[in-house]
Design a binder for these strands. Sequence first.
DNA 1: CGTGATATTGATTCCACTCAATATGAGTGG
DNA 2: CCACTCATATTGAGTGGAATCAATATCACG
Lengths: 281, 281
Amino acid sequence: MRNATNPMLKRLSALVSLTDGEIELLEGLTFEMRKVTAGEWLWHEGDSADSLLVISEGWGCSARYLSDGSRQLFATYLPGDILGIFELLSGIRRNDVSMLTDGRVCEYSYSSIFTLLNASNSVRSALFVIANQHQAMLAERLVSVARRNARESLAHFLCECRARLLEFLPDDVDGFQLPLSQQDLADALGMSTVHISRTFSALACQGLVRRQHFHIVILDPQRLAEMADFDDHYLNCDKRILTINKPISLPEPVATEWLASLKQDSKSRPSAEGDEPTASS
Amino acid sequence: MRNATNPMLKRLSALVSLTDGEIELLEGLTFEMRKVTAGEWLWHEGDSADSLLVISEGWGCSARYLSDGSRQLFATYLPGDILGIFELLSGIRRNDVSMLTDGRVCEYSYSSIFTLLNASNSVRSALFVIANQHQAMLAERLVSVARRNARESLAHFLCECRARLLEFLPDDVDGFQLPLSQQDLADALGMSTVHISRTFSALACQGLVRRQHFHIVILDPQRLAEMADFDDHYLNCDKRILTINKPISLPEPVATEWLASLKQDSKSRPSAEGDEPTASS
DNA sequence: CGTGATATTGATTCCACTCAATATGAGTGG
DNA sequence: CCACTCATATTGAGTGGAATCAATATCACG
C-alpha cells in the first residue's frame, strides 16, 4: 500500500470505504507535491481556482482581511486536510489561504478531480463530508465568538485542536505543537492578543493547560472540555455514519432510461471525462 | 407552467441551466407540501434525516441552543431556500430548525433526491452551490460577530436580508417584512436585545433605516452598505460564474424561455409580501 | 379593555480592548 | 559567546462598548 505517497487516497480512505477500483483510480491520480514555507500564500480571494490542495505537512489557515487592517481567521488546516473543495464549482477562491508553518502541499488539478468525482460515489461523498466538517467547525467558531467568554472560547479551540490531532498523534502524548501565535489565536477567536495571553494564564492557573512557546500540554482534557462545553461529535460523527450507511450510492431501482438518456447528453460535453453517474460497484 | 408548484425545480433552475431531461426529472419528483406555523419545529439536532425541505412560504431559521439557556442563530431561511443538504450523507440533523413565521414547506424524500443526484450533474452542482452560499453567509456572520461593532453588524445583516430578498421582491420597493424579533436578531448577531434596540435607534438617527414593527425600510442602501462594509458577491457570484463556466454541469443549450418564464412567474408571485410575515398572521 | 409579547429608556456593571512599558526568546552576525 | 534585532509574549493602568438589571411603554390580539 502506498497510501502514504498519495495524501488524497490516505485521507479519503480514512473517511469512506473504497472499492478496489476506486483505490486504483486514486492511486493513478497525478499530483504535484511542493514545499511551502511559513507565511507563504497558497492563494488569495478572487484568484481563479483550478486545483485541489491537500496539506501533507505543516499547518495552514484561511482568513479574511478587513478594510480596517484587522483579520478574521476562518479555519486552520492540518496535515491531511483538503482545501478548495467549495471552489470546485465556482472556479474562484473564496478567501485568502496561507501557511502558518513550513510544510508540503499536494496539488491535484480540477480536471483530474472532476474525472474522479464523476467516476466515484464514494469520493463525492467523502469530499462532501469534509466540506460538512468545515462548515461545522465554522459554526462552532461562531458560537464561541458570539456566546462564550474568553476562557470558554480558548478552551474550546484547544479541545478542537486536540481532537483533530488525536488521530495523527502517536498514543496519548498529551501535548502537541500548536503553531499559532497569540496574534493568530486572537484573529481566530475575535479577541485581542493581550487578552489571549491573560486567558492562557488563567487557564494555567486553574491547572488546565501548560504552554511554552508553541507547545501545548492539556493537563486535564476532561475538565477543559467541560468548561468549554466541548462535544467532539461534530468532528467525527459523520465518519462513523458513513462507514455504516454507504451514502450517496444508488439505493434504488433507478430510472435507468433516464440515466441512459443523460449519458447520451454527456457525450456532447467538452471536457469529456470518464462518464456519468457510475451506478457502478 | 407548474414551476410554481414545484419549489425545487423553481429554485434549481434559477441556479443552473437544466436540460429538458433534468427538468422533466424534477417535475416528476414527488413531494409533500404542508402548512407550518410560526414557532413550529421542522426538526431537532440529532433527529434522523431522510428528507430535503424547501421553504415555499414564510421564514425559518436554524439555531443552536446552549446549556446556559442562550441561543445562537446560524441561518435564516427564505422562500426558495433548501434545507437539509448537508444531512444527505450523515442522515442526522445537525441543528435545530424552526419556523419564524407561518408558511408552507415542501418535503422531498432522500431516496428520490438520491436518484436525482445520481442522474444529474446539474442538480448535484446546484445543491453544492447552495451549500456553498450557506457556508459563505455563516462566514460573514462570524466576521460580523467577531470584528464589527453593533452598528456595522446590524447594518450588515440588514443589507444581507435585503440582497437576498431583492430577487423576490417586486422592483424597488425599498422596504420589506423582516419577521425577526429583536430577540431573534440578538441571537443571530451575538448581542443583547437591549442593544439591538439602541442600535436600531442609532441607525434611524443617522437616517439609514426606518423600522416599525417588523417592517424595515432601508432609506439609504448605499450608505448602509458602506458602513457595514457589505459586498454582496458572496451571495450571487457563484450563480454568475456557474452560468458562465458550467463546471460540472452539462453545458447544454439553455432553455432560455424557461428562465424567462420563471422570472415572470416570480414577479407575479401572489402574496409577494402581502400576508407572509407578521409572526402569526 | 386587559393580557402577554415585544420594545424602549435609564442606571449601573463588567469583560475585554487599548495603550504603553517591559520581558522573553529565536535568529543573526560580529 | 555575546550583542543586536525582531517577533512574540507578559503585565499594569485606564477606557469603553455592550451586558445586565429594572422600570415603563407600545403593540397585537383575543
